[in-house]
Each structure stands twice: as C-alpha cells, then as structure tokens.
Computed example of a mutant assay.
Amino acid sequence: MKASNKVSAFSLLICSNFAMADWSTTLTAVSDYTFNGVSQTQNDPAIQASLDKAFEGGVYAGSWASNVDFGDTDIEWDFYLGKYVELDEQWSADYGIAYYSYHGASESSDGNYPEAYAKFGYSNALGQTEFNFWYSWDYFGEGAGHVIAMVAHTVEVAPNHTLRASIDVSNSLDGDKWLWQGDEKSYYHYRLAYQTSSDKFNIEISAENTSLDFDTADERVVVSVSRTFAL
C-alpha cells in the first residue's frame, strides 16, 4: 500500500495568488510516484493530473488523480478543500481537509480515508521554511489514528534554480491497527530536490530515502515534469 500523507503527490496551492478566483489544471509526468518516500507504482512511472479552483479570500478546492499499483488497485483519486492565509509579511498558513479514494477492484475503496492538514510557512532573505502537519483518524480505513510532521526549507541558489530539503516522520497512533514494518509504528523520510522551470514547464529532480527496509522505500532519484494551465 501507499505511505503516509500527500506531500509530494499534489501541492495544495501554497502561494499568494488566491485573490484571483480562477480555474487551473496541472499535468505531471513522474518517473516514480513516491508518497513520503514509498513508491505507489512499484518503482514505475506515473501520469498525474489535478483540477483546482481558487476563490477570493484564500479558499481553494480541487481534485487530483494518479495511476498506482496496489495489486488490483490502479487509480488514486483525491479531493481537497482548504484555505490559505497570509498572517503577516513573513508568516503564512494553509489548512484544510483531504479525502483519498482508490479504484480498480471492488475492495479498493476499503482503503479510502480522510485527512486534515495544517501548514505554516516562514519567509525571509534566507528562503522559506515550512512546518507541516497531517492527521487522519481512519488511516486507510483501518480505524487507526496517524500523524505526519515535516520540516522543510527552500532556498533559491540562483535565478530560476531552487533547492528544497525536507525531513518528515510518519507515526501510527494505534499500533494494534497499523504498523509500518515489523513492530515499528513510525519511520523517517529524507528528501533533497532541485527545482527549475523552462518554457512554462516545471522540472524537479529529487533524491530521497527512508528508514524503512524494503525495495519500494529505499534510496532513489525521482524526476518529474509538470505544466499548469489556466482555464
């Protein structure tokens, strides 16, 4: 199955342009769909798409989909609703709720689950630091509480050339219902990404690893190319 919260799967519009009430869609090709460092496609590529609506006042809503490979489950389709707020010149907050659904076999929907999130950003001359949190009270339909915490920092090393480093921990609050490996209730995920853009395409090359010990969660390099279209 998949791993932890939707950090690298879709970006929940953490930006400052919510004053415009517009539709947009993003198409992405990625060499491996990893979710907190664990491949959701058995180390194979994925095609992903989102449809987003930004409203006045920072409210946004959207949907995101990707191919996956969990046995007979081959589609993940997610929905989210949230709000972005600029607290002052340096601090911002982004909070909301997401719902993850799975399709392919009749039992695929057994893994559907909701998740609440809160993300805080701090920007200064040294870049932007993020403090992000996710919580599910029914992780993968197992009735288990699950929490993820992340710290990340993004810095522009040259015009149109950015580095983003992050570390996150995924932690089960109910070990009798959900364990990650053996008797371990938690694991760590480390990621370093290079980001740039060219001719309206966003490009990211990331190196990542986890503290888990299986082949879909080991060290890897992931390449993604995406483009956003205003509708």
Rank of each mutant, 00 (worst) to 15 (best):
A3M: 02
N5V: 14
K6E: 15
K6Y: 09
S11G: 13
S11Q: 07
I14A: 07
M20V: 14
W23K: 05
W23D: 06
S24G: 12
S39R: 03
Q40R: 03
Q42N: 15
D44Q: 14
D44L: 09
A46T: 15
A49L: 12
S50G: 14
S50H: 05
F55M: 15
F55I: 08
G57E: 06
G58S: 06
V59R: 10
N67P: 02
D72H: 08
T73C: 04
I75L: 11
E76C: 04
E76P: 02
D88E: 10
D94R: 10
I97L: 13
A98Y: 06
H103Y: 12
S109N: 14
D110Q: 10
D110W: 01
F120P: 00
S123K: 06
N124R: 03
N124F: 03
L126M: 04
T129S: 11
N132R: 14
Y135P: 00
S136T: 11
D138L: 07
F140C: 07
G141Q: 09
G143D: 14
H146N: 15
I148R: 13
A149V: 12
V151F: 14
H153K: 13
T154E: 15
T154I: 00
V155R: 09
V157C: 03
P159D: 12
A165P: 04
D168G: 06
S170P: 11
S170F: 05
Q181F: 01
Q181V: 04
D183G: 02
E184P: 02
K185Q: 11
S186P: 00
R191E: 09
A193F: 01
Y194L: 09
S197K: 09
S198F: 15
K200M: 12
S206L: 12
S206E: 13
E208R: 01
T210M: 01
S211F: 05
S211Y: 01
L212V: 08
D213Y: 03
T216G: 02
E219P: 00
E219T: 09
R220G: 01
V223E: 05
F229Y: 14
L231D: 11
